[in-house]
Design a protein around this nucleic acid. Structure first.
Lengths: 233, 233
DNA sequence: CGTAACCTTGATTAAGATCAATTCTCGTGG
DNA sequence: CCACGAGAATTGATCTTAATCAAGGTTACG
């Protein structure tokens, strides 16, 4: 397991010895598509690192609508919030997971890091604390961006921005990528974008008719970057 | 200034000496209503602590719509995210404020804590790092709650929840509070709730007609808790 | 195969934004 | 001290967006 832990960026500076200590209170677990890692309000055991596959973190509204807060990909962490929120008072407070989490890849593997020993571990390791803080800060920025998208933009703009960002993320070294495969179902994507499958489907169709993109199953191919950028604003 | 710093919960464990060190690279600044502390994308100088008054942190959409991300009240911090996000690489990266921030009280005082010296300061102080992490984690939870509200609830439910939470926050020791004064303009509240003043005004009126609350200027008085709770779900 | 989940398309409806107009308050300057 | 103008709030009429409702088609898996 230490080999896996080493690949997690926040742990990259740990010594072999520290990694083994970390591994000693961690646990490797595998899931299939649709398996649930934890439910909202369930007692908190610790945080997770996805090492393979993918999971979604989401909430339900009272009437059963689902909204995906984020999708977590390999070597990223999730559910660290309760850990730090209660850092000082870990033995007194009963604390719980703040959302639901389910595997959305049929071959998903995660590491569960138990909360209590980890808190002791981090208390003597300021550099690690600062790295984890960077992770939290990044998450905060992503969530603030997500909120901004949902609060300020209509569905067309959200979808256009999503495609634009996805392509940008894949493009490296001045090599623009112009197509990608959706790693999740369109239903989940709709939920992540704060809409419903019907509306997302219509939006994709409209974008095709307008010559912005081409959609074939789960592949999205960019046809006209200028039009895409116009659709974003 | 150390007297003020001492009242900030994350600094509560610092020694007199440490507080003075902190004060040495901090700066007390006063603002009037409408004064802007910083703009989105402006170069990052450091984070702020509100010690008096109130500020709003907000984003603009392309067509000028404003959405308030959060309202910051005395002895809370803001704009710490860039600090940690770049913690390791503070000297290389040009980093910037991620949103706009404006005073919304005519007598607002803040402390600006400069980023670079603070990073060095925290690097040798794991307990402080962990406390700041708790602050970030709490912010993350609040933002996730905010996102949930906006993504999953209609305006009626958002307004009802807002009133319910405001009353709950003020109620202590089994002493239910049944009225409160809005600390911000209704226009700002509308922006925070992801709607517009017209819609908020109509919602308040409907709630009055339904006998849920009474609104007089900026005072909201609860008339029927059961109906309020029904309106929330 | 058969069932269930996913996706698409069409028709309808409802929520809430936009547009427009009026009133009120408050701070500023004549 | 009063007048003026700006921002805030309210109300009404209208319009747009996207959710809901309904149905059919396609794919994947047991």
């Amino acid at each position: 397991m230490t080999e896996l832990l080493k690949q997690v960026s926040i742990f990259s500076s740990l010594s072999e010895e520290e990694l083994e200590k970390l591994a000693s209170f961690s646990k490797l677990i595998s899931y299939k598509y649709g398996d649930t890692l934890f439910f909202d309000s369930e007692p908190y055991a610790g945080f997770y690192i996805v090492v393979k596959g993918m999971v979604k973190v989401y909430k339900y509204s009272k009437d059963g609508k689902e909204h995906i807060l984020h999708i977590v990909t390999p070597f990223n962490t999730l559910a660290e919030v309760p850990l730090f929120e209660n850092a000082g008072k870990i033995f007194e407070s009963d604390f719980r997971y703040p959302a639901n989490c389910t595997a959305i890849d049929n071959d998903t593997t995660v590491i569960l890091v138990r909360a209590r020993p980890f808190i002791s571990f981090i208390e003597n390791n300021a550099p690690l604390a600062i790295k984890m803080m960077a992770g939290l800060a990044k998450r905060l920025r992503l969530m603030s961006h997500h909120l901004e998208e949902i609060a300020l933009k209509d569905v067309n703009k959200r979808v256009a921005s999503f495609i634009h960002e996805a392509l940008k993320k894949l493009s490296k070294d001045n090599k623009p990528v112009k197509s990608f495969v959706l790693p999740i179902t369109k239903t989940d994507l709709a939920s992540y974008l704060g809409t419903i499958p019907e509306t997302l489907s219509r939006t994709f169709r409209k974008f095709q008719e307008d010559g912005i993109i081409e959609v074939e199953d789960n592949t999205i191919r960019l046809k006209n970057i200028t039009k895409l950028e116009q659709a974003m604003e």
